[in-house]
Simulated scan of single mutants.
Amino acid sequence: MTEKFWRGFTNGGFVGHGETYVTEDPIRLPGESSDILWWSKGGVMIGKSPDRIKFLRQIIEAAPGELKPIPLFTWAPFSCVGIEHEYYLGYLNDAQPRSIVIDLPTDASYNVEVIDTWNMTITPLEKKFSGHSLIGLPGKPYIAVRIVRNK
Rank of each mutant, 00 (worst) to 15 (best):
E3G: 01
K4G: 02
K4C: 02
R7V: 01
R7D: 09
G8D: 07
G12W: 08
G13V: 00
F14T: 14
V15Q: 06
Y21Q: 07
V22K: 14
E24N: 12
D25E: 11
P26R: 11
P26M: 12
R28E: 13
L29C: 04
P30L: 07
G31C: 03
D35L: 14
D35P: 00
D35I: 12
I36H: 03
W38T: 10
W39R: 06
V44N: 02
M45E: 10
I46W: 09
I46M: 14
G47D: 09
K48E: 15
S49I: 07
S49K: 09
D51G: 14
D51A: 14
R52Q: 15
R52L: 03
K54S: 09
F55Y: 12
L56Y: 06
L56D: 08
L56C: 08
R57K: 15
I59W: 11
I59E: 14
A62S: 15
A62V: 13
A62E: 15
A63G: 08
G65P: 10
G65H: 06
G65W: 08
E66T: 11
E66D: 05
K68T: 14
P69H: 01
P71R: 06
P71S: 04
L72F: 07
L72V: 01
P77N: 08
F78S: 02
S79V: 02
C80R: 02
C80K: 02
V81P: 01
G82R: 06
H85C: 07
E86S: 10
E86A: 08
Y88S: 01
G90W: 04
G90A: 03
Y91G: 01
Y91I: 03
N93I: 00
D94C: 12
P97M: 01
R98E: 15
R98T: 11
S99R: 13
I100A: 00
V101E: 14
V101P: 00
V101T: 14
I102S: 02
L104H: 03
P105Q: 11
D107T: 11
D107M: 04
A108Q: 12
A108S: 15
S109F: 07
S109P: 00
Y110D: 05
Y110E: 05
Y110I: 06
Y110T: 07
E113T: 07
V114W: 00
I115A: 05
I115F: 07
W118M: 15
W118P: 00
W118D: 08
N119I: 03
N119S: 13
T121C: 13
I122C: 12
I122Q: 12
I122L: 09
T123F: 03
L125H: 06
K128M: 12
K128H: 10
K128A: 12
F129P: 06
S130M: 04
G131Y: 06
H132R: 09
H132E: 04
H132D: 09
L134F: 11
L134A: 09
L134I: 13
L137R: 11
P138K: 04
G139D: 04
G139Q: 08
K140N: 10
I143R: 06
R146P: 07
R146N: 10
I147N: 01
I147P: 07
V148C: 09
V148M: 10
V148Q: 15
R149M: 08
N150K: 15
K151W: 10
K151T: 02
